[in-house]
Computed example of a mutant assay.
Amino acid sequence: MSVTRTPAPDWTGRVDPEDGPEAIRLHQRVQPGAKRAVIGFACDAGVKRNKGRIGAKDGPAALRQALANLSAPVDAPPFSDLGDVTVEGDALEAGQETLANAIADALADHERLLVMGGGHETAFASYAGLRKAFPQARIGILNLDAHLDLRLPGEAGGSSGTPFAQIRALDPERFDYLCVGYAEEANTQALMTRAQDWNVGLVSDHELIADPHAAHAAISDLMMRNDYLYLTIDIDVMSHFQAPGVSAPAARGVPFATIEQIVSFVLTSLDGARTKLALADLVELSPAHDRDGVTAKTAAVLARRVLMSASDAPT
């Protein structure tokens, strides 16, 4: 069992010089020293401990591949690739510590960082790194997910099902968590009761299907009372036919268009707001279970929005 830092791969893809200087794809916007950056967490340990379908370790590579050929918008900001934290075997805690430290270091030089998981155990490391970078800040957690992921760690330790319980244990007085898209049948009553006891904000998949804007008010409130927003997207929040390549496919799920709209709402709301989005992650992409790369393509569209949106850094 070991944890290593793997250098960033070379980004390659289609090039269309015959279409002129505006025919740019994302692989052509990767450059060292950019204000935006990505980092991967290649890990299966959390999903395995949570008795899910393993394969998330290959998620970062699949997401990079799906991102590479997407078109770059006009005036697209460049971004850096900081490589991967790779976890072998069951070295989850060491991997999370390494990732948290890498995130804290990266946020000293980058205005926004996108972490590519890995299972949702990535979230504990993401939050720990954000907290280390901004120890006095108020941080609101927005989780787009079918699952609350509030399980208590068992004998084996944390898992992809425990990150937000671990975050609360790490930072109990400042725990501010909103879960959007949860499925009632995918969460035990014990988890629902825990969420109520811990004042977790909840918007269900049923509510979002009935009204795609159902979470807007809760998201706005979360942003207004915090200095930083930590956005974490578990791809299994979407329907199984739009996201088959995940650890636990959703029987119902929230339509991709609704999730994309929520992400856009968050990014648009940052314009002129006091709240900053310094960190986001995308987790649970499991390429071994993907069909025709559908899930990777879905995740890549969301990643593109997070990476390419207008800057919200202080001026």
Rank of each mutant, 00 (worst) to 15 (best):
M1R: 05
V3G: 10
R5K: 02
T6R: 09
P7F: 05
A8F: 13
D10G: 13
W11T: 15
G13Y: 13
G20R: 13
E22L: 06
A23V: 03
A23S: 13
I24S: 09
I24P: 01
V30S: 12
G33S: 14
R36M: 02
V38W: 01
V38D: 00
I39T: 14
A42Y: 01
G46N: 01
R49E: 05
K51L: 13
G52W: 02
G55H: 05
A56D: 15
A62Y: 08
A62P: 07
Q65A: 09
A66L: 05
L67I: 08
A76P: 05
P78L: 07
F79N: 03
S80F: 15
G83N: 02
D84E: 01
T86W: 02
G89T: 15
D90E: 08
L92E: 00
E93G: 10
G95E: 14
A104W: 07
D105F: 01
L114S: 03
V115D: 06
S126K: 01
L130M: 07
A133W: 12
F134S: 07
I139K: 02
N143W: 07
L144A: 13
L150W: 14
L152V: 08
L152E: 04
P153Q: 03
E155Y: 15
G157N: 09
G158E: 00
G158D: 04
S159N: 09
S159A: 06
S160F: 07
S160C: 09
G161N: 11
G161F: 00
T162D: 09
A165P: 04
A165M: 13
A169W: 13
A169T: 00
R174F: 04
F175A: 03
L178Y: 10
G181Y: 12
E185M: 12
E185T: 08
A190K: 01
A190G: 14
R194V: 10
Q196W: 08
D197R: 13
G201Y: 01
L202Y: 13
H206I: 14
L208I: 11
P212Q: 01
A214M: 05
A214D: 10
A217W: 15
A218G: 03
A218R: 02
L222S: 01
N226F: 14
D227A: 11
L229I: 02
I235G: 00
F241V: 11
A243E: 13
A243K: 03
P249M: 03
R252Y: 11
G253I: 08
P255R: 03
A257I: 07
S264A: 12
V266S: 09
S269P: 03
S269T: 00
T275Q: 08
A280R: 13
L282I: 14
V283S: 07
V283A: 15
E284S: 01
P287G: 06
T295N: 11
K297W: 14
K297T: 14
L302V: 06
S309F: 10
T315P: 02
